[in-house]
Computed example of a mutant assay.
Amino acid sequence: MTSVSVSKDAVVSNPCVSLVIPVYNEAHGIRETLEAAEQVLREISDDYEIIVVDDGSTDQTWECVRCVADRDRSIRLIRFTRNFGKDSAILAGLKHSRGEGIVVMDGDLQHPPEILREMVRLWREEGYKVVHGVKERRQEESFFHRLFAKIFYGLMRGFSGYDLKGETDYKLLDRSVVDRYVGFPEKVRFFRGLIPWMGFKDTSVAFSPTNRKEGGSRWGSFALVRLGVRAICAFSSIPMQVVSILGGFMFIASLMLGFQTLYMKLTGRAVEGFSTVILLLLFIGSILMVSLGLIGQYLSMIYEEVKDRPAFVIDKTLNFEP
């Protein structure tokens, strides 16, 4: 890992507020995000830091942020060797943060920096350990994304008991929350769900997300489906139990069909055609494939945990103390 060191007096050693911004290919808008966030942070505290985690961007994101960080030592940079995923980028930022209050915010200005004032006030004055940024409405997106979100939140609520509708990764966490979160041994993480699961005293601040000013969402359809499946499996074993329930249902159905077939055979009435058999084979085959897929998902997550590989690998850092 390569790091660039600076003198200790140039870097705030114990900032009151840390802002973690995971980014991936945000070269067009990251400077505007940093300017807007820092303007608000200056009003909130004299001691703050901004940690930008470059999750293996393939554009000029690192160069853009480095130009700003070279002039402002309160902006600290982490660069991964490749794309490890947003949850890994958030974890890296939290591990390297030093503030007593840590905020996680996206780098595309869909999370408005203006509500940082209220989030910090609720943390400082009212003692909340977690302050969630919750969407009042969803930003403009495709029909598939809206449909998937509705299905995902419904399944998540039904399987795990956690209602994450409107939840985002925009959160303020107390240092005690962060210390426990980074201490979790699991590698497969879902930040948006793990924080409510921890059960600390929390509240929420509503906001209306703006549309991206440059480009579209970095989340493709397959990536969203994969994220949803992993999140549900990480928080509930009910899908595995559903497989058992479906197996029991099919066993009962097969017994009933077997008795019917035997009765018709004994009474001398032949079964006409194979439509029923074909439909049953297709139905049973579909259930088997879905069941094997669910089992495979759980096994793959266990496999990732057993390998015990690090959640990320850092290539470079900037403006951190040696």
Rank of each mutant, 00 (worst) to 15 (best):
I21H: 00
P22V: 09
P22M: 10
P22F: 04
Y24T: 04
E26V: 02
E26Y: 03
A27S: 14
A27C: 04
A27Q: 13
A27Y: 05
H28L: 08
H28V: 04
H28G: 09
G29Y: 07
I30K: 06
I30M: 07
R31N: 10
E32M: 13
T33M: 12
T33E: 11
T33C: 12
L34Q: 09
E35A: 12
E35G: 11
A36M: 10
A36P: 09
A37P: 10
A37S: 15
E38D: 11
Q39K: 15
Q39G: 08
V40R: 12
V40M: 03
V40C: 01
L41G: 05
R42K: 13
R42P: 01
E43Y: 11
E43D: 14
E43G: 15
E43H: 13
I44S: 08
I44V: 12
I44Q: 10
I44G: 05
D46P: 07
D46V: 11
D47R: 14
Y48D: 03
Y48W: 15
Y48A: 07
Y48T: 02
E49W: 12
I50P: 00
I51A: 07
V52F: 04
V52H: 03
V52M: 04
V52N: 01
V53C: 09
V53Y: 06
V53D: 09
D54R: 09
D54C: 07
G56N: 05
G56D: 10
G56I: 06
G56Q: 05
S57I: 01
T58V: 01
D59S: 09
D59K: 02
D59Y: 03
D59N: 10
D59W: 06
Q60R: 11
Q60Y: 06
Q60F: 09
Q60M: 12
Q60G: 05
T61L: 05
W62M: 02
C64G: 01
V65C: 13
C67M: 14
C67H: 14
C67T: 15
V68W: 14
A69G: 03
D70L: 15
D70W: 13
R71K: 15
R71D: 14
D72P: 03
D72W: 11
D72Q: 12
R73V: 08
S74P: 03
I75D: 02
I75R: 08
I75L: 06
L77I: 05
L77E: 02
L77N: 02
I78M: 08
I78D: 00
R79S: 10
R79V: 01
R79E: 08
T81I: 08
T81V: 09
T81R: 04
R82G: 01
R82A: 07
N83G: 00
N83T: 01
N83A: 00
F84Y: 15
G85F: 04
G85E: 02
K86D: 02
K86I: 07
K86T: 06
D87F: 05
D87M: 00
S88H: 06
S88L: 01
S88F: 04
S88A: 13
A89F: 08
A89T: 11
I90C: 07
I90Q: 01
I90G: 10
L91P: 00
L91M: 13
L91W: 05
A92T: 07
A92M: 08
G93W: 04
G93T: 09
L94D: 10
K95C: 09
H96Q: 14
H96P: 03
H96R: 15
S97M: 06
